[in-house]
Design a protein around this nucleic acid. Sequence first.
DNA 1: AATGAATGAGTATTCATTCAT
DNA 2: CATGAATGAATACTCATTCAT
Lengths: 216, 216, 216, 216
Amino acid sequence: MSILARVIEPRWERRKDARPGELASAALELFVERGFAGTRLDDVAKRAGVSKGTLYLYFDSKDDLFKAVVREGIVSRIVEFEDRMRAYQGSSADLMRLLVKTWWQKIGSTKLAGITKLMMSEAGNFQELANFYHTEVIVRGLALFTAAIQRGIDSGEFRPIELQHTPHICAAPVLMLMLWRNSFDLCGVEQMDPDAYLATHTDMLVRGLLADKRKD
Amino acid sequence: MSILARVIEPRWERRKDARPGELASAALELFVERGFAGTRLDDVAKRAGVSKGTLYLYFDSKDDLFKAVVREGIVSRIVEFEDRMRAYQGSSADLMRLLVKTWWQKIGSTKLAGITKLMMSEAGNFQELANFYHTEVIVRGLALFTAAIQRGIDSGEFRPIELQHTPHICAAPVLMLMLWRNSFDLCGVEQMDPDAYLATHTDMLVRGLLADKRKD
Amino acid sequence: MSILARVIEPRWERRKDARPGELASAALELFVERGFAGTRLDDVAKRAGVSKGTLYLYFDSKDDLFKAVVREGIVSRIVEFEDRMRAYQGSSADLMRLLVKTWWQKIGSTKLAGITKLMMSEAGNFQELANFYHTEVIVRGLALFTAAIQRGIDSGEFRPIELQHTPHICAAPVLMLMLWRNSFDLCGVEQMDPDAYLATHTDMLVRGLLADKRKD
Amino acid sequence: MSILARVIEPRWERRKDARPGELASAALELFVERGFAGTRLDDVAKRAGVSKGTLYLYFDSKDDLFKAVVREGIVSRIVEFEDRMRAYQGSSADLMRLLVKTWWQKIGSTKLAGITKLMMSEAGNFQELANFYHTEVIVRGLALFTAAIQRGIDSGEFRPIELQHTPHICAAPVLMLMLWRNSFDLCGVEQMDPDAYLATHTDMLVRGLLADKRKD
DNA sequence: AATGAATGAGTATTCATTCAT
DNA sequence: CATGAATGAATACTCATTCAT
C-alpha cells in the first residue's frame, strides 16, 4: 500500500474476529453508566466506532447484546481463580487476605466489576440472566470464601463460625467497593483508596475470624 | 355528596394531600424493579390506580417524579435516627449493635431500602441527585458509624483504628443486604434471613473493633 | 363555542368510536395500491389525518391492522347477499344475471373489491388469513353460484353440467374485473366499461348453461 | 480446466451467461410468493446460491432486477405463440380450444404465470412497467382471442358478438387459474385440477360463441 | 381535579447498497 | 468475478407529554 493510500481513511475496515469483543466492551461501559434501557444502540455503535447496523451483524438484539456482555469473560476468570485458591499452602488468615486482594486485582478493579453493578441494577428486567449470574458467579465466588473459612476452622486457626452468612459478610465490603466505583464514584463524590480500604477490611475480617488465643 | 354515598364508596374518598405520596410510592416500587428508563408512566399510573394525566397534576415530569421519590422520606428518617444515637448511654459495642439493628428496622427492611438500590443504579443518569443523596444520606449515615467508633476508641473500648474507611466497612454488609433484597432476591434466588445475617455481622464487627484484652 | 373559537384548529379531536373504521379505510386504500410491505404506517396515518401514534391506540401492529382491514365488512356483506339469493323466485337464467349484477353492485364496484386483490397479492405472507378468507368469502361466494346452477339443472332449464369447476368459471370474469380495476386500471391503461362487460359475460354464460332446445 | 475436473464439479461450471437467468429465476419465485417489497435480496441470493454482492454484478438495483424478471421470457413466448395461431387450419371452435390449451401449457402452468400475479400485485408500484406489460403481453394475448373469434364470426361458425369485452371474458377463467395457483393454492386451500377446469371452460365458451343452429 | 385520546420525537431494527479484499 | 462486512437511510413501534373534555 502506498503512503498516499494509507492516509486515505477507509470507509470501513474488516475486523470480523475482533469486533464482538470491541462491541461488547463499548456496550458494557454504557450499560454500566446508564443502565440497559437508558443506553442507546446509536451510542454503543459510536463508542465502538462502527455504524448501528454493524451491531446487528454480531448480536440479534439489544437484549442479546446485554446477555453477551454479562456472560462473556466472567466465568473464565472465576475458574482460574478457583484453581489458584485451591493450591494455596500458607495460613488461613493469609489465604483470606490473598482472596480479597486477588479478587480485587482480577475483577474488582477491572471493567468486569461493572457487570456486578449492572446485574444488580437490571436483575428485575433480566430474571433468567440474573439466575445464571447468581449460579455461575455469586455462588462460586462465595464458595471460595466458604472454603477458606472452613479451612481455617478445621486447622483451629479460626473460631467455629456459621458458614451460611459469614461468606456474604466477608465479601460485602469488596462488593460495595466494586459497586461504589461504578456508581457514586463516577459522579465525582468522595473517592475511595481501594488498597487502604481493603487493608482495613482484611484486618478487621481476620480479627473477626481468629480463634481466641487467651485460652491457650 | 350524601353521607350514604360516602359510606358506600370510601375508596374514592381520597384527599388531595395523600395523592403525591401514593403516586411516589407506586413509582418507587417500579423504579426499583425496572430502573428509571425501564419504567413506564402508564404502569406507574396503573399501579397507583389513577390515569396517566393525573401524574402531571403533581409532578412536572418523569425526572421530577424520580427526584421526589428519592428526596421524600429519606432525610426525615435520618434526622430522627441521628438524635436517637446521640442520646445512647450504654457500651460502644452495644451502640454498634443498636445502630445496625435500628438501621435495618427503620430503613433496610422498608421500601426506602429500594431507594438505595435505585440511586446506585441511576447515579450515572442523575448526577446532581446522586450528589444530593451522597451528602444528605450517605455521609450522614456514615457519620453515625464514625461517631460510634470514635466513642469506643475514646473510652478505650475499641482499639485505635483509622476512621476513613472503617465506617464504610461496618456499613457494607447492611447495605449489601438492602441491595440484595431489592435485586437478586426478587427473582427467586437464594433467600436471606436478615436477623441471623445481621447477628453474624455485628458479632464479627465487634470482635474486629474491640481492643486487645490479652495485655490486661 | 364562539365563532372565533371555531376557527381555531384543534390540535386533535376525540373520535374514539369512528376512528377504527377511518383508519382501516385509509389503510385499505394504501394496502391495495402498494401492497402490505410497501405501505408505510406514516402514510396510512397521514391519509387518515392522524398521527402515527394514534394507529397504535387501535391496532396492535401493522399485521393486526392488515387483518382487521380484511376481516371487517366482508363477511357481513356476504350474509346479506346469501339471504337475497335464497329468496329469489324467477328463472334460473335471470337468477344468474341477478347474481352477477348484485355481486358487482354490492362488492365489485366498492372499495371492498380491493380486499380481493389484496388477499391474492398477500396470500403468501398471511397464510392463516388467506385460509380464513378462503373459507369465509371464496367458498361462500362460489356456493351462491353452485346453488343457482343446481337450481337451473333441477328445473331442466340448464343442461347437466359438473359443479366442481363451473362456479369458478362463472365467477372468474367478475373477479377479473374486480382485480383489473384495482391494478392495471389504476395506472391509466385501457379502461373497462363494467356494465357492458358484465352484460356480455352473462349473455355468454347463460348460453353456455342453457339446456339444448333443438330436441323440443 | 481438465476434463476430469469438469466431471467432478459440474455444479461450479457455470457460464457467466447463465447467471442472470438463474438469479432472475430465483428472484421470480420470491417476488411471486412475497411481493416486491416483501422480498429480501439476501433471500434471493441465498436461493440462487450466490452472495448478495453478486446480484449487483448483474443488476443495478432491486428495481432493475424486478424489471428484468418481468421483461425476460414473456415476450419471446408470445411471439412464438402468435405465429402458431396464425397458421392454424381447423375449425374456429377447435382453434379456441387450442388457444386455451396452449396458453395453459406454455405459460399458465409454468413459472411465467407467476409474473402475471406479480404484475397485478405490483402494478401500483411500477406503473411504467405495468404499461409495458399491458402493451406487450396483455394486449397481444387478448389479440389472439380477438383474432380467433373474428375468424369464427367471419366463417359463420360463431354468432356475431362484440369484440371489445368478449376476449377478456374468454381469457378470464384461464387467468384466474394462473393467479389462483400462485396465491391461494400455495397456502394449502382447495386444489384445482387444471385440465378438468379448462375442459369445462372451453366447453362453456364454445357453446357461448357458436351461432344458433336451429335456424338453419 | 381527573381523564384518556392524541401527539410526535425518539429508538430498535431492517435491508438495499457499497466496496476492500 | 465473487464475496460478505460495513453502512445508513428508512420504518415499525414506544412512550413522555399535552390538552379538550
